[in-house]
Amino acid sequence: MKRFSFFKNILLPVLAVLFLAVSVNVFRVKLGYCIERTKKETAKLRIENDYLAKKIAYARSPKKLEEYARSAELKYPEPYSIVMLEEIKAPKPKKTGWLASIFSRNPKTNI
């Protein structure tokens, strides 16, 4: 009976704590590996993103655009040959009659 109570009251809890500590450490190390791999992957993706941004930026450079334009045989226009349109604001809608207002959309109900 005494042996059994020593095992149950002391040894088992100590073993349990030790097991828990070891499991936590193992989990911590695995998590550490996972985090470090994720960081490495993130760094790699950031570098890839930088390279893609670089490609886009180079493609939009004035030098590149001029090359594309010249290869398409485009030329710089004279200023007088460009027509600038004035911005015209859309006219306000006329007031509708009572009959039309029944069939027009109500912004509150969307009917």
Partner: peptide, 24 residues
């Protein structure tokens, strides 16, 4: 001229378009 085209600067003098083309 390039700045005028790029920045859409409006002309401030009247001109004859046909004469302008001929001159160019």
């Amino acid at each position: 001229k390039r700045i005028i085209n790029l920045k859409n600067i409006k002309p401030d003098r009247s001109f004859d378009y046909k004469e302008a083309v001929k001159t160019s």
